[in-house]
Design a protein around this nucleic acid. Structure first.
Lengths: 132, 132
DNA sequence: TATAATTCCCATATAATCGGTAGGGATTGG
DNA sequence: CCAATCCCTACCGATTATATGGGAATTATA
C-alpha cells in the first residue's frame, strides 16, 4: 500500500480545517475528536503540514491551526506528499534515492514511470475543496 | 511505495518468459542471470505465478517455466497482483482486511477508492506484450 | 501573576513488512 | 545413478508503520 496513516492523517487534518475555514485557529484536540483519531498521533502530521507551509499554527491558549490559502488552492497531491514524503509507487523512483544501477536495462522501469505519472496526474487534479 | 520487489520480480520473470515465448521451458537460473536477480529470491515469485496459474512449471532436468497463454492476454495488473497480493493504495481497501469502523464517516475513503480505480484502470490497460 | 490550553520536541515501544538467505526435499531427463 | 530443476520451510537483520508518553515552550485570559 502506498498511502499510510501519515498521509491519511495529513488529509484528515486539512479536510477538517477546510470545513471550518474562516473560523480562526482550530485546535487539534477538536480535530482529533471529530476525526476520531489520537491527538498525539495527529500532532506529527499537523506539525509536518505546518513545516511545509500548508497551514499556519498558533501556540498557546486559543491557538491551533488554519489553512494558509483558500481550500481550492491545495492539490491533494501536495497534502499527501507533505505527510508521506514520497508517493512514488516503487522505491527507485523516489527523489533522493540512490539511482538503481540496473535502471538502463530494467524491463519494468518505464512502466512504473508511467504509473507514477497516472497517479500524480490524478492527485494533482483534485483539490482540497473537492473533498468537502 | 506500493510495488515491492515481489511484484517487480513477478513482472521480470513474466517479461523474460515472454521474450522467450515458444522456446519451451525456461529455467529460473537463466532468468536470474539475464535479469540480474538472485535465483533464490526469484523462486518465490515464480512459484507464486505458478500457483496463480499464470505460468506452467516443469520439474526435473530441462524443466523450468513457460507462459500458459499468449503474452498479449496478460494484463500487468494480474501479474502484479500475483506477486503483491494486493495493489490497494490504502490498507482499508485491501480485500479481506477487517472493514474500517469509520468507513461510513471517513472523509478520505471516497478519494482513495477513486485513486484505486485510476490505478487499476491503468494497470488493466497494459498487457505483458506492451512491455517487450 | 497564575493557570489552563495549546503547539512543539524528543524518546520509546511494539508489531509488521521488506528483502533476502540457507538448507534440503521431490522430481525428472539423460 | 546423477545432475538439474522446481518446491518447501525456516530463519534473519534492517527498516517502516503505528503509535504512546513525558514534558518544554508559548500564549490568552481571568
Amino acid at each position: 500500500m502506498m498511502i499510510t496513516t501519515k498521509g491519511r492523517n495529513a488529509l484528515k487534518v486539512m479536510i477538517d480545517l477546510a470545513r471550518h475555514e474562516g473560523e480562526g485557529f482550530i485546535s487539534l484536540a477538536d480535530i482529533a475528536v471529530r476525526q476520531n483519531e489520537s491527538l498525539k498521533y495527529l500532532e506529527s502530521s499537523a506539525k509536518q503540514l505546518s513545516t511545509s507551509g500548508l497551514v499556519v499554527s498558533a501556540r498557546g491558549k486559543s491557538g491551533g491551526y488554519k489553512l494558509s490559502r483558500p481550500a481550492e488552492d491545495y492539490t491533494v497531491a501536495e497534502i499527501l506528499l507533505s505527510g508521506e514524503g514520497s508517493l512514488a509507487p516503487v522505491s527507485c523512483l523516489e527523489e533522493g534515492s540512490a539511482p538503481c544501477e540496473n535502471a538502463c536495462t530494467c524491463a519494468t522501469l518505464p512502466l512504473f514511470k508511467e504509473l507514477d505519472e497516472v497517479i500524480m496526474n490524478f492527485l494533482n487534479s483534485k483539490t482540497l475543496k473537492d473533498l468537502i
